[in-house]
Nucleic acid binder design. Structure first.
Lengths: 205, 205
DNA sequence: CTTGAAAGCTAATCGGAATTAGCCTATAAT
DNA sequence: ATTATAGGCTAATTCCGATTAGCTTTCAAG
C-alpha cells in the first residue's frame, strides 16, 4: 500500500480509538513509519486527512452490500435469494448483518470515528444518520417488504417492522463497539431477537 | 447557583457539544463569568471538572425515575400504576420515556457528553452501557414483566420483548441528539412503534 | 478589630503540537 | 546525461492552552 493510503488507514485507526482531537500528526506519522513533516507532502494538514477518510468512505459503500452477499443496489434481485426464507435463513441474515458490521475492520473503525465526531457539524451528523439509520432501514425495509409480499412475513406496517428488526441489532452493535467483551452476550441476544421477530411477524403465528 | 456548581453546569454544556478535548478551560471560565485561573480555586484541573460531572451524575439518577412519574426503585409499586394498562397508556409510557430522555437538559447533555467520551476508557464505557443499556432494559423489563404476569402482554421471553420495546426508542433518541430537526419524525415513529408493539405483544392478538 | 480563608485577578511559565523552511536523494521522464 | 519531481528528513517557528505565582479583596469567625 502506498504512503498516501497508509496515512488514511493509520489515521482512521487512531481517530476511531481516541477521537480526532486526541490524535497528533506525530502519532499518525510514527505508525506510517515517517516523520510528521513528511505527512504534509501528502495532505495539506490534519483536517485534510480526516476529510479524505470521509470522502473515501462514500466511494466504498457498494462494497458493503457485496460483503453481505447481497447485491445492495437492487433489492428485487436480492429478494430472489430469500424466496424460500424460513426462520433459520432469517437468523442467518441477522447474524451476517451483525457480524459484518461488527468485525469488518474498515466499517468498524469508520463507525467508531463517526460516533466520536458526529456532533462536530451537520454534515457529519448527516453522514452518520444516513449510514447507520436511513440507509439500513431503507434497504432492509425493501427486503423485508418483499418477504411480506411473498407472504413469508405478515404486517401492515413494513417500516415499523423494519425498525423492530434493525434497532436491536444497531443497539447491540454500539454495545460491542464500546465493550468488545460483550460480543458473546450480544450474539446470543441477536439470535433470540430474530427468533422472536420471526414468531411475531412470521406467517404461522 | 454557586460558582463551583456553575462550572460543572457550563462545562457539561460545552463538553456535550464539542467534546472534552475541544473545550478550553478558558471557554468554561468565560461562560461562568470568571477568568480561567480562578477555576483552579474550585477544581484541581480540567480533568477534575470532568470527573466531578461523572460523579455528580451517579448521585442524580433517582431523580430520573421520579421524572418519569415512576418510583424507580420499586417496580412492584410502579406496576400498580399500570394495573389497567391499555394501548394508550403504553403509548404514553413510551412517549414520556422518550420525551424525558430527549428534553431533560441535564440528561441530554450528559448523554451527549458520554457519547463523545465513551471510548476513552473502560470505566466510561461501562457508565454509558449501564446508563443507556443495562439499567433501562433491566428496569423496563421488570415493569413489562409485571404486565405480562397480569396478562396484559403475552410473551415467553420478557427480556427480548423489552429489547423490542426499548431499542427503537434508544435508536431514535440518538438520531434526535445528532439531528434535532428530526424530532417530529422520531416522535411519529415512536408512536407507531408502540402501537405495533402493543399489537404484537398485546393479549388481544 | 484583626486575621485568615475563599475566591477573584493579572502576569508569567511551561510544554506541547501543528505547520513551515529548507535541504537531500532517488528516480523517472526528456 | 540532465533535470524536475516526489517524498523524506532536521531544525525552526509559531501559537495556543493548561497551569502556576503571587497579589488583592471580601467577609465571617474569634
Amino acid at each position: 500500500m502506498n504512503t498516501k493510503q497508509r496515512i488514511l488507514d493509520e489515521a482512521l485507526t487512531l481517530f476511531s480509538e481516541k477521537g480526532y482531537a486526541n490524535v497528533f500528526v506525530n502519532d499518525i506519522a510514527e505508525r506510517v513509519g515517517i516523520k510528521a513533516p513528511s505527512l504534509y507532502k501528502h495532505y495539506k494538514n490534519k483536517q485534510a486527512i480526516f476529510d479524505a477518510i470521509i470522502d473515501e468512505m462514500s466511494s466504498k459503500f457498494e462494497q458493503q452490500a457485496q460483503a453481505l452477499s447481497i447485491n445492495g443496489t437492487d433489492p428485487a434481485a436480492d429478494a430472489e435469494v430469500y424466496r424460500s426464507m424460513d426462520e433459520d435463513h432469517l437468523i442467518k441474515l441477522g447474524n451476517d448483518l451483525f457480524a459484518y458490521f461488527l468485525h469488518d475492520s474498515y466499517t468498524k473503525r469508520f463507525r467508531k470515528m463517526l460516533t466520536l465526531e458526529q456532533f462536530k457539524d451537520k454534515d457529519l451528523a448527516k453522514v452518520y444518520s444516513e449510514q447507520y439509520f436511513d440507509r439500513p432501514l431503507s434497504y432492509q425495509g425493501m427486503l423485508l417488504g418483499l418477504l411480506v409480499s411473498q407472504g413469508l412475513l405478515v404486517t401492515d406496517n413494513v417500516p415499523i417492522m423494519t425498525l423492530h428488526f434493525y434497532a436491536p441489532i444497531y443497539m447491540l452493535l454500539t454495545v460491542c463497539d464500546r465493550e468488545p467483551d460483550r460480543e458473546k452476550e450480544a450474539l446470543k441476544l441477536i439470535e433470540e431477537h430474530i427468533r422472536q421477530f420471526d414468531k411475531l411477524y412470521g406467517r404461522d403465528y
